Simulated scan of single mutants.
Amino acid sequence: MRLSVLDLAPVRTDQSSADALAATMRLAQLADGLGYTRYWVAEHHNVPSVAATSPAVLVAMIGAATSRMRIGSGGVMLPNHAPLAVAEQFALLEAAHPGRIDLGVGRAPGADPVASMVLRGPVGRGERDVDAFPDHLDDVIALLGAAGVSVQLPDGAYILKSTPHALTAPRVFVLGSSLYSARVAATKGLPYAFGHHLFGEHTAEALALYRSEFVPSELTPEPVTLLTVNTVVAETRSEATALILPHLHLQARTAAGPPAGRLDLVDDAQRTTLTTDQGRVAQGELARALVGTPAEVLARLHELTSRFGVDEVMLNPVASAWRGTEPATAPGREATLRLLAEALP
Rank of each mutant, 00 (worst) to 15 (best):
D7Y: 04
P10V: 00
V11N: 00
D14Y: 00
S17D: 13
A28G: 03
A31N: 08
A31W: 04
G33T: 03
L34F: 08
G35P: 08
Y36E: 03
V41K: 00
V41Y: 11
V50C: 04
A51V: 04
P55G: 10
A56E: 13
V57M: 11
A60N: 13
M61D: 09
G63L: 03
S67H: 10
S67T: 14
I71W: 13
G72W: 08
S73P: 01
L78G: 06
P79V: 06
H81S: 06
A87G: 06
Q89H: 12
F90K: 02
F90Q: 05
L92E: 04
A96F: 08
P98Q: 08
I101S: 01
D102P: 02
V105E: 05
A108F: 05
G110P: 06
S116L: 14
V118Y: 01
G121Q: 07
P122K: 05
G126T: 13
E127W: 11
D129R: 15
D139E: 15
V140D: 00
I141V: 15
L144V: 03
G145S: 15
G145W: 05
G145Y: 05
G148Q: 12
L153A: 07
P154L: 09
Y158W: 15
L160T: 00
S162M: 04
T163P: 01
L167G: 03
S177N: 10
Y180S: 14
Y180F: 14
A185S: 08
A186M: 09
T187E: 15
L190A: 02
P191Y: 07
P191I: 07
H197F: 15
A206V: 10
Y210W: 10
R211G: 02
R211C: 08
S212C: 02
E218N: 03
T220Q: 14
T220M: 06
V224N: 01
T225G: 05
L227E: 06
V232S: 01
E235Y: 00
R237D: 11
R237H: 13
A240C: 07
A240L: 07
I244A: 12
L245C: 07
P246K: 02
G257R: 02
R262L: 00
D264S: 08
L265V: 11
D267S: 08
A269D: 08
T272Q: 09
T275D: 05
D277R: 11
R280N: 11
A282R: 04
G284H: 02
G284L: 08
G284Q: 11
E285R: 15
A287H: 09
A289C: 09
L290N: 02
P294Q: 06
L298K: 10
A299Q: 15
H302V: 14
L304H: 07
L304Q: 12
S306M: 10
R307H: 13
G309K: 09
R323D: 04
R323E: 11
G324N: 07
A328S: 15
A328E: 13
R333V: 01
R333D: 00
T336I: 02
R338G: 00
E342R: 11
A343D: 09
L344H: 08
